[in-house]
Every structure is written in C-alpha cells, then in structure tokens.
Design a protein around this nucleic acid. Sequence first.
DNA 1: ACAATAAACGCAACTTTGTTGCATTTTCCA
DNA 2: TGGAAAATGCAACAAAGTTGCGTTTATTGT
Lengths: 140, 140
Amino acid sequence: MTIDFRNAAEELIQHNGGRATAGRIGILAILLAEQHAITHREIEHRLPESLPLDRVTLYRALEWLVEKNLIHKVTSDDRVWRYHANREVHAHRHAHFKCTRCAQVICLDDLPEKRNWHLPAGYRFQEIELTVKGLCADCC
Amino acid sequence: MTIDFRNAAEELIQHNGGRATAGRIGILAILLAEQHAITHREIEHRLPESLPLDRVTLYRALEWLVEKNLIHKVTSDDRVWRYHANREVHAHRHAHFKCTRCAQVICLDDLPEKRNWHLPAGYRFQEIELTVKGLCADCC
DNA sequence: ACAATAAACGCAACTTTGTTGCATTTTCCA
DNA sequence: TGGAAAATGCAACAAAGTTGCGTTTATTGT
C-alpha cells in the first residue's frame, strides 16, 4: 500500500524534473496517502523513523512540491499552512472545509462565480479563497 | 475630526461595560477612522507618541474589542490578523478583498448562500470565510 | 472627594511557524 | 565513475502572538 504511494510519488517527482530524494518521495507519499490537508508538523510526525528529516528541508521540499503543482497549500485562520496532494479534482481552484473543533481540512469542489463579486471601481479580480467552517462528521 | 472618533470610541466602550482607558479609546478611534482592515503593527504605528502602548496591551485590547463585537478580525494568507471596526454593514457576515500587491484589505458586502455548499454527509455547516484576491485601484 | 477593588496595563520571557545563509552531502548524467 | 548542480542539515534569526505576574488605574460606593 504505502509502497504504491512511494512509487507514484517518485514518478511524479521525476516527471517534473526534480531529484527523487528520499525526503521528497517520503513527503509526497504521505500527502498522497492522506485524505485531508495536513500541516507541516503533522507531516513531520508521519515521517518514519528511518527517514529523519530536518524541519527546514521539509519546508523547502513542500515549497518545491507546491511550485511544481504536485501539492497545494491551504490558508487557515490558525496561521498554519496545510498541504494536500493535487488530484484531478484540484485541477481547478476549489473551496475548503475546516472543522472548527478538530481543525481537519478537506477539499470541496465548488467555487462561486467570479462575476458575482462586484468589486469597487478600478479593482481587478484575480482569485477567490473560500473556507467553509463547521463540524466534520466525527465531531458532530 | 479625530476627536469625533475618540468620542464615539469612548461611548461604544462604555456602553459595553468596559473601562474607557486611553489605550482602548485610542485603538478603537484609529479603527473607526480607518477604511481598511489593518494589522496589529499598523495600529501600533498609528498610535500617537502621547500614547505609547505595550504590544501585549494592544493585543489584549483588540481581543476585548472583538469579544464585545466592536471590531472584527480578518484572516489572511500572510498569517497576520487584520482588524476593522464594525459598522452597520458588518452586522451580517461578509466577504473581504485583499490586494495581492499592497496587502490592503477592504470589506465586501456579499456572501454566497449557505445552501450552495453541499458538505459530505454528517458534516454541519457553521460559517463561510471568503477572501477575494486581486489588485486594488492603486495597484492596478 | 476618596478609598477599595476589580480591571487594565507593562514587562519579561516564551512559543510557534516559518525563513536565511552557508558549508556539506547526495543525486544524476555525461 | 567523477564532477556539477541540487538538495540537505545546522545554526541563527524573524515575526506574530501568548502567558504569568506584579503594578497601576478607572470606576463605584460611601
């Protein structure tokens, strides 16, 4: 199981012209295996003991993966980035759900239309960032 | 002009059962005078020399003002809270606009309908947090 | 007007998240 | 397989925000 994610991760990394280092593979495999967007710290805890990775290296690897569009970052109100592997669903921009009790984050599929947003004169639209907050099934 | 904001601030604070200290009045007056949501640091810089306020006191005053519903906080992707005085417009929840160049934040008036968001089974909706990103008139 | 007291405040120290510079190690490919 | 480029690890730093605690201040009742 894990091995499949590792293989997929390695392939994805190489197809993007990056070096398939143990760190990157491990990180991406963790994110591929994960349903929810997770924090830097959660990734760190999921790393096997056989792969001790420096905090900074983890930050840089995540940055690289975001750049290469293999994962994406989610803003949150707790000042912590969460990361999630990109799948087909994420080809387009999408909304996120965050549980107000356990802080779990998942991806939703819709985003409101851009034209609904009448900005003041002279303002230019670029993108929408939307988080729905509530309770997840476990916390309800 | 400033004096009007100070008077309004003092009244608002007293009507909420809080002590009208120089700090709170000064802070709320600044926020009342401000069009945009501004950061802790920006507030600090706007404080007159006659009112040197400790960082911590500022944080605590802001926290109190949020609790009392006199101001509200805005989440942002730069991990910094921005604060804005509540006006009639803000009686209901609303969206925000953030300029991707100068980081200025303003309030918009609409929010998409809750029912548009079909969450997974068992999830409970609470609220929406939405930021439109783009360029403001000055940065276009 | 004034004293008592609860609420604010200021200071110092700490935490968390993330970043930067630089020397060392590793990957990849010629 | 050996050398260049890329990735890593370490140490130090930075920004935002929090906590504990002793001191000051605004309010309230007399």
